[in-house]
Computed example of a mutant assay.
Amino acid sequence: MAGITYGTIYAIVAIGFNIIYNATGIINFAQGEFVMLGGMTAVTLNLYVPMPLAILLAVVLTMIVGAVIEIVFIRWLYKPSVLRMVIITIGVSILIREIALHIWGDSVRALPYFTGSSVTSINLGGVYISSQILWVVGVGGLAVAALTAFFNLTMLGRQMRACAANRDAARLCGIDAGNMVTLSFILSAAIGAIGGCVVCPITYVQYDSGTPLAIKGFTVAILGGLGNSTAAVGAGMILGILESFSIWVLPTAYKEAISIAILLVILFFKPSGLFGSAEAARLKEF
């Protein structure tokens, strides 16, 4: 179950990448910091308010951070190159990480299990799993379903996709491209914060926990094909299971290298991803 659990976590991060990419064509390497902020903020707020309210407030605050990032660092740019956006979002992620270190220090934190505890488990067909794992998988599946419906069935979702395809043409059709970009960052921050809160009881959270998640989430996004949130789930499972099996044949220290190796292989040989999103080939612009 460890592979499925971590695969779902990576998929949630990849979905955040896909939301912004679908609306803007931008690769946001600060996505991992949204996950970290959601978890850290929820842990802090849970000291003063009930956990459901703490999670809700943490998501709202992270959404505000996402909007501020877009307005301050992204909106004023005119047709930035992929490389420029990568550098800017990496810089933003470093800035957020340093602010988090100043606020929370370097201690490791965690939320309580939503239901049950770390020592209790549920019997599913003879397999005992933690109840929090079901929360992680359930939230991940719900996020994919909701976002797929949003981008394909709602007018707002189609407007966001139109901005990604051709922002100038979208403006000529009366779409406020600036607001669509801001909304994409807000949605991406929200899904990242929700994911951070859900996985926090299992993986714990620290000021620098967003960086490895961003790398693995980006790997999953590329593996599944950028912009394809449904494929990100399958790609996340592949990476999570590969990491779990890798510790049987390699020292634990090499576990973190698996995602980097997969990312390099995909970028070299099939930049459109395993599930065939041709738009992902834009990464060749690096």
Rank of each mutant, 00 (worst) to 15 (best):
190 A>C: 03
158 R>S: 10
286 F>I: 15
277 S>H: 01
185 F>L: 01
139 V>F: 12
170 A>M: 07
68 V>N: 13
48 Y>Q: 00
48 Y>T: 05
277 S>E: 04
193 A>Q: 12
55 I>W: 09
37 L>V: 09
82 V>Q: 02
233 V>N: 09
133 I>S: 10
67 A>E: 10
173 C>P: 01
243 E>I: 03
16 G>E: 11
277 S>W: 00
94 I>L: 08
68 V>F: 15
255 K>H: 03
212 P>M: 13
55 I>Y: 05
211 T>W: 13
2 A>W: 11
111 L>V: 06
264 L>S: 12
133 I>Y: 11
238 I>K: 05
216 K>Q: 02
282 R>D: 01
278 A>N: 09
144 V>Y: 13
180 M>K: 03
133 I>M: 10
100 A>M: 04
148 T>A: 07
103 I>V: 15
102 H>Y: 05
81 S>A: 14
92 V>P: 14
9 I>H: 11
24 T>M: 15
186 I>T: 07
147 L>T: 09
126 G>I: 06
141 G>H: 09
172 L>M: 15
43 V>A: 09
110 A>C: 07
36 M>R: 14
56 L>I: 14
248 W>Q: 09
178 G>S: 14
95 L>K: 02
67 A>T: 14
69 I>F: 03
130 S>Q: 08
183 L>V: 12
158 R>A: 05
85 M>Y: 11
265 V>A: 15
218 F>P: 01
75 R>W: 01
196 G>K: 10
65 V>C: 10
73 F>T: 14
138 G>L: 03
152 N>G: 04
1 M>R: 08
264 L>P: 10
259 S>A: 15
272 S>H: 11
222 I>V: 14
13 V>A: 12
173 C>A: 12
19 I>V: 13
255 K>S: 04
2 A>L: 14
243 E>T: 04
262 I>A: 14
233 V>L: 15
179 N>V: 12
281 A>L: 06
157 G>F: 06
11 A>R: 12
250 L>T: 09
175 I>V: 15
139 V>D: 08
5 T>I: 12
103 I>H: 02
129 I>C: 01
93 S>E: 02
225 G>V: 11
144 V>I: 15
172 L>W: 14
282 R>V: 15
160 M>G: 10
5 T>G: 03
260 I>C: 10
150 F>Y: 13
180 M>P: 00
243 E>L: 03
127 V>L: 02
209 S>D: 12
29 F>C: 06
85 M>C: 08
156 L>N: 04
198 V>D: 06
63 M>K: 06
58 A>R: 07
208 D>L: 00
24 T>I: 11
151 F>A: 05
122 I>F: 02
69 I>M: 03
42 A>N: 10
202 I>D: 02
79 K>M: 06
4 I>V: 15
